[in-house]
Amino acid sequence: MAAEGKTIDALSQFELAPALGPIGASVNFTQSNLFMLIAAGLILALMHYGMRPAAVVPGRLQALAETFHEFARNLVVEQVGPEGRRFFPFVFTLFMFILFGNMLGLLPFAFTFTSHIAVTFTLAMIVFVLITVVAVSLHGKKFLGYFFPEGAPIWLAPIIIPVEIVSYLSRPVSLSIRLFANMVAGHVMLKVFATFVVLLGGLGAVGPFIAVLPLAVNVALVGFEVLVAFLQAYVFAILTCIYLHDAVHLH
């Protein structure tokens, strides 16, 4: 359908459509939400069935579950410090949700919910609200001191304070746009080269031979996208941890 009318239609893959039949349609449940549900289900299944043996020497699935667990825990403890342990469930949920969303999106016929700015911005806003609430509840009025570092000359305040406020407010924006743009760019590239394969494949006898080139590019791109999928989930999680560190320690 992408090659219909010999045009490259790389954006229709991001279109939302109701899922789960008439029931889903009646509550505006989209295929994006369906994949969120699948991701959540996979995460829960992995952690539940993986940890069910509760073996001292873990099997493969348990080792995988524990690897994710340990990865996220180290992330939190190294960035936030020992007092950040109570944020571990949140960071773990965030990291796994984004990672599974990114990875699921690479499967054929799957929808990448992290390619929607509304989704990534919502996740970023959850982080933003969390760090602000944590900072205010831990430090009260002293939290305002975050926008003007101690020891800075007072006449610099008119410059520093707006800059700090803007940089603080731009956190959710940069956080969400980074993930969104990475996922969209990757999927657009995949779609464009996949369309090339179809278009070039139709060019008579030599077509299939030329079409091998964009196909090879796509194979490489998929490998690259797997890396990006992991990396963006990691970046999202580690930036969340860094913001949490700022919220807990104020600089």
Binding site: S32, F113, A118
Partner: peptide, 15 residues
């Protein structure tokens, strides 16, 4: 698109 906003609401529920 109302689906966009609904997607966010469902995201909050699922997350």
């Amino acid at each position: 698109n109302p689906l966009l906003l609904a997607q966010v609401v469902w995201l909050l529920v699922i997350f």
